[in-house]
């Protein structure tokens, strides 16, 4: 049994028979390949995840997030390149700025803040900063699938705590996708 599966199970088995539906926006330059590594490294996670590939995390408009919730998502995660590593120079900063204020606005309108997450992709530089003296093969791998799977597990469990996304207008307009 693979470790990520163990972790996912140990968290899920006790309290949830229900799995949150997640939408993940992936920057095609960094995190999309990371997501690939999950498959090539045969790491997996037990979640209902839809991945959407975007040219840059700056492409993610707040309306995308609202649309995800309208269509039946319970949580949204946006992945961007690490600091100073965006190929479009400021796309990830733009995304971070936009989404930080947008999330707080949604919180004000009664959304649960645990449903929306934004993350940089972990890089070698980050691993160095964390004091990792691992050999290069570990580092290059650690910037990929393993971290990714752990982070996803982390976030999925947070979304699971928040529960199913509540319908804003349940009786007037039935929610689609479920």
């Amino acid at each position: 049994m693979l470790p990520s599966k163990d972790i996912a199970k140990s968290k899920t088995e006790e309290k949830r028979d229900w799995q949150p539906r997640m939408v993940i926006f992936l920057c095609e330059r960094c995190s999309y390949t990371d997501a690939d590594l999950i498959d090539s490294g045969r790491l997996s996670h037990d979640s209902l995840i839809e991945t959407i590939r975007v040219p840059c995390s700056g492409r993610v408009d707040p309306i995308f997030i609202l649309k995800c919730f309208e269509k039946g998502a319970d949580g949204v995660l946006i992945f961007g390149c690490s600091q100073k590593e965006c190929r479009n120079s400021t796309g990830n900063y733009h995304a971070q700025k936009k989404l930080a204020i947008f999330r707080t606005l949604l919180e004000f309108c009664g959304f649960d803040a645990r449903r929306i997450h934004f993350s940089w992709t972990a890089t070698d530089a980050d691993a160095d900063r964390a004091g990792s003296a691992a050999p290069s093969i570990e580092k290059s791998f650690s910037s990929g699938g393993a971290h990714w799977a752990k982070l996803i597990d982390n976030i999925v469990s947070q979304v699971a705590e928040a529960g199913p996304f509540p319908d804003m207008y349940p009786n007037i307009y039935p929610r689609r996708g479920k």
Binding site: R103, A122, A130, S132, A134, I137, H147, K150, N154
Partner: peptide, 21 residues
């Protein structure tokens, strides 16, 4: 609100996972 990457410090987890991989 960027996700804290505290898990990077969990070297054992990374190592274990990497080795298996």
């Amino acid at each position: 609100f960027v996700e804290k990457k505290s898990f990077i410090k969990e070297k054992s987890f990374v190592k274990e996972k990497c080795n298996k991989g």
